[in-house]
Amino acid sequence: MSAILPPQHRIWWKQPVDKIEIVWIVIAFVWCMIMFFMMPYWHVFGKQNLSTETYRVKPELFAKATQEMVDKYTVRTEGPNKVPVVAPPAGSDVYLIARLWDWWPILELENGKSYRLNLTSMDYQHGFSLQPENINIQILPGYQHVVTVTPNRTGQYAIVCNEFCGIGHHKMVSRLYVK
């Protein structure tokens, strides 16, 4: 019977199901399970998993920790606004502030070394988008997100904001270096 009319058989749930449908259900189900197990699998064997290490944080405290890092490890400044370029030691906690409408400071990391990258926002939500690598992480005010990163290619990168954050959103772009 047609789909816009009641089923012809009152007891429609006892009607046989076509073989072709059963075969497809089985195939689709197996594929769904493969996709499901890919995620835990990658947590065990893969090298790209987003950490969820998160703390509640007051913006002033985060700014203070960032300032200490800048005071200790600045190697030069860059751009018209003289943004400090900071080269902290491998393995350490490094801080990056997102705020209306810039990233602060510029980090200079060493290829193949790991760093604990600390992210937060001073005001609205922002989006950390590392280009051309294309790694994207949401940044929320009030939360300090710690992600361990291991660069695998030297060069100059850009950090673009990809969460709408007001009228200066499209100018919120900065750099990052890997030596």
Partner: peptide, 24 residues
């Protein structure tokens, strides 16, 4: 998007930004 272009963005040439980036 696969090449990194952001959504909700008025100008991906970043004209007028202090440290602009050039998309491929």
């Amino acid at each position: 998007g696969t090449l990194g272009v952001p959504r909700r963005h008025w100008d991906i040439t970043f004209a007028g930004a202090a440290l602009p980036y050039e998309f491929p």
